[in-house]
Amino acid sequence: MPSPIVFDGHNDVLLRIMEEGTPRAFETFLNGGAGGHIDLKRAETGGLRGGMFAIFPPSPHEADVTSRMPKGGYALPLPVPLEKAVAEVSTVHMASILFRLERMSKGRLKVCRSVADIEAAWAVGAMAAVLHIEGAEALDEDLKLLDVLHAAGLRSIGMVWSRNNIFADGVPMAFPSSPDVGGGLKEPGKRLVERCNELGILLDLSHLNEKGFWDVAELSNAPLVATHSNAHALCPVSRNLTDSQLDAIAASKGVVGLNFATAFLREDGSMDDNTPLETMLRHLDHLLGRLGEDGVALGSDFDGAMIPRAIKDAAGLPALFSAMESRGYGSDLIEKIAHKNWLGVLGRTWKTAA
């Protein structure tokens, strides 16, 4: 079968462009030759036509964690909380990068605020980019900036990365480890859930600890979504979801995006690009068994993690679909995983906007 259209639940290309910090970073993303995993040329080759473009406010001086994820286990401490003023600067900077890419692309990339926008972008061959925040440290307790960002195009937010903030606690990078680490939502976090429901902003549960997850499940009237997480039963790293969590997501008609990061796929929990596609298929099989055919999607973590060398970058996505087909996945199921399930859950979430 021809490779399907792909909508991806998570990438960190905005962070990569910000950290490169040169005009060339914009040009190479738009015209090819960029580093990392994504540029528009490789995206077109691989069928990647849209996704969540994450704003991730980085922790200053935080070293690359991949070298500290060896086989046999690890327990990395949570980074120190990020100051609001520091997070504001990087959050606004990365939002501006996405809007600048839209202007510079001359119609090849469009920032989308509805499912209709995504479909319209695809109709003209454009990349459909959805503005997402991973780590809400830039937001104030009264959520004034949330209103501004929503008006600008924000449609998805993870209240934490793997560090604590005024809203909730994140999970540390630890293997083997339960996600049941830290406390539940703080009062501002509960208000954030309510306001996101009012605005129709998707709440991303990836990186949130287990107590926070269950608080969101109790408070939210929207589908439960984890944009880039895997099955804890197969890889017992703190970042993955237990079967009980997966069952709750299924009951809410939510979605989980398969994370390509090898440390969240492998039984040994290590960052090792020599990870076969079979390992990814085992997670897909497990997720399908708990969530059903309408609850599983992709959340690659492109430009934010080490991924299997069999895929390598956005151009390599067809290798995963070929493996799915060989596994016996039919074309309808592959299309659901590739993009239809994302569009479904976005429609069920965004339509609640006030």
Rank of each mutant, 00 (worst) to 15 (best):
M52H: 04
G183A: 14
V130Q: 04
M324E: 08
A152M: 15
L199C: 07
L246K: 07
S162C: 11
S67M: 05
A314N: 15
P4H: 01
M94E: 15
Y329N: 06
H339V: 00
A248Y: 01
E187D: 13
V193H: 08
G125I: 01
F264K: 05
N341K: 02
L246P: 09
L287T: 07
H10K: 06
A338N: 04
F56E: 01
A297P: 15
L199D: 07
A121I: 06
E19P: 09
S220N: 06
G32E: 05
K351F: 07
R239H: 03
L277T: 04
I249G: 13
N197R: 11
M306P: 13
S238F: 06
S162M: 03
K106R: 15
R195D: 02
P60I: 01
P58Q: 00
L343A: 08
K144M: 05
V160R: 12
R348Q: 15
K211Y: 00
E325P: 05
I311S: 10
W350Q: 13
A354H: 11
R42L: 07
F264N: 13
Y329R: 08
N230M: 11
L277F: 00
N11K: 05
R163Y: 04
P60Q: 03
N221V: 11
L258C: 12
L258T: 07
I97P: 14
A226F: 04
G72Y: 00
V160Y: 12
G316E: 01
S220P: 04
G200F: 04
W342A: 13
T91H: 02
K340F: 06
N274Y: 08
P57Y: 00
S206H: 01
E210Y: 00
I133H: 04
V216E: 04
L277M: 05
A121W: 01
D215E: 12
N209D: 11
G50K: 03
S220I: 06
V193I: 11
A297G: 15
E20N: 10
A310L: 09
G73C: 11
E210A: 11
R108A: 09
G107M: 02
F167S: 06
R282P: 13
H132Q: 14
E88F: 01
G289E: 15
F175L: 13
A25L: 08
A138C: 10
S3C: 07
D169K: 00
P81A: 01
G292D: 10
S244P: 00
E27A: 13
S177D: 14
N165A: 03
L154Y: 01
G158P: 07
R16H: 10
L149A: 06
T262M: 05
D117P: 02
A222H: 14
H150W: 14
E44S: 15
A305P: 12
V13Q: 14
E278Y: 03
L82P: 12
H93Q: 14
A120E: 15
L287K: 07
L78M: 15
L139H: 06
G73N: 12
G135C: 02
L185S: 14
A354E: 12
A85H: 12
V216Q: 09
G72D: 03
L78R: 15
R68N: 09
F302I: 13
L258Q: 09
G183P: 03
G330A: 06
G9E: 04
E20C: 09
P176S: 11
A226I: 08
L98E: 14
R239T: 03
